[in-house]
Amino acid sequence: MRKSRTYLLTGAAIAAVLTLSACTNGTEPSSSSGSSSSPTASASFAPADVTFAQMMIPHHEQAVEMSEDILARDGVDVRITDLATQITAAQEPEIEQLRDWLAEWGTDETSTGGMDGMSGMGDGSDGMMSDDDMMALENASGPQAGELYLEQMIVHHQGAIMMAELELDEGQNEDAKAMASNIVTSQTNEIDVMKDILSTL
């Protein structure tokens, strides 16, 4: 009787372990194979992810501001206005997504440490335009405004790509890294387009 009871208890214990194992595998994937759609992957983040989001929001906002400024001008090459429309359409949704992530992570939108939170940044290499740069674009008109927009946006994109590459190297959140990868690809392509347009102006 004692031996039979032992076998029954052992069998029940094994079944319980298998059940728990199945549940764990279904809801808590490891960091190496986690899906970006799972709650665990979405909630997992590192300081670099926070810094990336905090710094990319104003970076994108400035790109949108520059693009809206050029779209309000007359006499600008249609290839440039098409590009400005494309940049605005791509970056406005990303701004909202970045804000949503910061809210989910319980962090402020405003960064206190700047890009110093990501190695290699904080040295002015983020591509942000100065007040004087923005004023120069605002004061330019027609073809001159279009050309200046392209020159500034190339530098701006280069800074965004550097920030995104640092996120890919140092970040942990899979969703944020996916956005960073998209930024590298899309903005590298846009830089090529802008250089091509500049060569024909």
Rank of each mutant, 00 (worst) to 15 (best):
D133Y: 02
F45D: 06
Q172Y: 03
S4E: 15
I154Y: 02
S36W: 00
D116K: 11
W105I: 06
F45S: 11
T10K: 10
G142M: 03
T200Y: 01
T27A: 05
N139G: 02
D100Y: 03
T185C: 03
T200W: 03
G171Q: 05
D169N: 07
L71P: 11
L98Q: 08
A72N: 15
E96G: 04
K195D: 09
N173A: 09
S37A: 08
E92I: 08
E68W: 05
L166R: 15
M66D: 04
K3G: 01
E165R: 13
E28W: 14
M179T: 06
E68V: 06
H59F: 01
M129D: 05
T110Q: 10
H59T: 01
V155M: 12
D192I: 08
S67R: 11
M118A: 02
S38N: 04
D196N: 12
D82H: 05
V193T: 14
Q91M: 03
G120F: 02
D196A: 12
E61Y: 08
V184P: 02
A63M: 13
N25F: 08
F45E: 08
G75Y: 09
G124E: 04
I57S: 08
I197F: 06
L148T: 04
S199V: 13
W101V: 08
A22W: 07
S119D: 12
S44H: 03
G26W: 07
E170A: 07
M1S: 14
L8H: 13
M121F: 14
A15G: 02
Q172V: 13
S36H: 00
G120K: 10
A15I: 13
R2M: 11
A90D: 11
M153E: 12
E138D: 14
I197V: 13
T19Y: 14
I80P: 06
L20C: 13
K177W: 03
P47N: 05
Q144L: 03
V78R: 15
M153D: 07
T10M: 14
M1Q: 10
P143F: 00
G124W: 02
T10R: 09
E190G: 03
Q97S: 04
I95D: 04
S111R: 09
L8S: 15
S111K: 07
Y149C: 01
P39Y: 01
V78T: 14
M115S: 06
Q86A: 11
G146I: 05
E165C: 03
D132W: 00
T107G: 00
V76W: 13
S119F: 00
Q172F: 05
I183L: 06
A176K: 03
D175H: 01
M56F: 12
